[in-house]
Write a protein that binds this DNA or RNA. Sequence first.
RNA 1: GGCCCUAUCGUCUAGCCUGGUCUAGGACACAAGCUUUUCAAGCUUGGUACCCGGGUUCAAAUCCCGGUGGGGCCA
Length: 442
Amino acid sequence: MINLFKKKVVVRFPPSPTGPFHVGSARTALFNFLFTRKNGGKCLLRIEDTDKERSKSEFEKNILDSLNWLGLKFDGDILKSSERTEVYKNNLKILLEKNKAYISKEEEGANKEVVRFRNPGGNIIFQDLIRGEVAMDVGKLGDFIIARNINEPLYHLAVVSDDIDTGITHIIRGEDLISSTPRQILLIEALGGKRPIYAHLPLLLDEDRSKLSKRKQGEAVSLDFYRKQGYLPEALVNFLALLGWNPGDEREIFSMEELIKEFSLEKVQKSGAIFDIKKLDWMNGEYIRKKSLEELVELAKPFVKDFFQFLIFNFQFSNILKLEQPRLKKFSELPEKIEFFFKTPEYGKDLLSWKGMSDEEIKNYLEISKEIAKSAEDFTKENLEKIFMKKAEEAGDRGKLLWPLRVALSGRKASPGPFDIMAILGKEESLERIKIAVEKLM
RNA sequence: GGCCCUAUCGUCUAGCCUGGUCUAGGACACAAGCUUUUCAAGCUUGGUACCCGGGUUCAAAUCCCGGUGGGGCCA
């Protein structure tokens, strides 16, 4: 699809730095980004920090970091609304002069005055790229307030002033803002601006179908949470893109380039989407499996800081990661999964039992394992497998030999196979762990 | 409460515009089986959905109307 729109596309993403960057915002940013990359326009970033009380520079930094981490690049300078008060005040003055707004005295509070917009009433109909025609009787809104006083313009006036000044052609935002659209259109037109084309995205929802909120989900609504949990940005981007959008075929895995190639607002869903972390886990696993070992090592390092001192000297780290790569969903799981490679595992002797084997039987098999391991010349996975499997076959049920061995080595119900583990631990440590297991059965 | 948006498996969705090929497809999750012990990964198989009612039509998941459910915004 070539650019459908005669005018060059300009969109904006205007987060408020009043809290940690939200995944819902991330998705809105992503859709804006995809839309402009696809249509060859500009995607502007605006920091909407008009609320001086709640806006904090740390949050602003968090927004920038997060967008950067996701790989979303914006065009041009960042606009900060806190630096544009004069512009808003000027627009307020214009509206007042044109008699499109007036100062009104509030009943309550002695000399409280606000500025209200003179609502012309009537029906506002606007085209929404996702929802089609949306109509609203704006008369019902009354003369809404646009400034707290002559020096303090409020949100809608600020947004509209910025949109006009930056030549925004398309506004792509969450559905929660759909009902403020008519009043913004009123303001744009009162200021002589041209109304942009709108696209209201379906909301991201909790399991109970309400808007994803910090109150209910806590940490899990902030992008940092996913970063800290060890999700890959490309997995998150892929997942977020598929929440409310779908190219119409059966593919699930998309790189950013593929998303840009396929994206279109016409294919965006109308109803809200539940954020299902299980699917994200699966997708992240898919991306982890695609990584090269070198990349994996680098990505994993921050998550295994506790072992880090040791790892610098341990050339086996990448071997261990290779074993965990197929079963890893996110990096935060790593320490717990690989701990046993670095320290003697703790476990109860019951874990050593395979299908109701007696202690005596387990002990016998562990002794056999010990002998085999002791006699092994070549302590590689391949050789160990060869010599152990021969003996395991003799047992009839291979698990009789292999299960106690694996538990002795790992101390875990689930782990990589015993030969993989032994090859990494080495002969001495492997024998030591088998010895400890035997002692547990005494 | 008012206004607005919305409705396909538990979840994300394809299909709806241009009605028949839909005994509704895919993915996640779940279950079973296979895969040289466990857990993964992989492969195979399975169950589960067109919100309800009416209308239009030879024919409706698809078009129209009315309910109901869900959500958002404002109060």
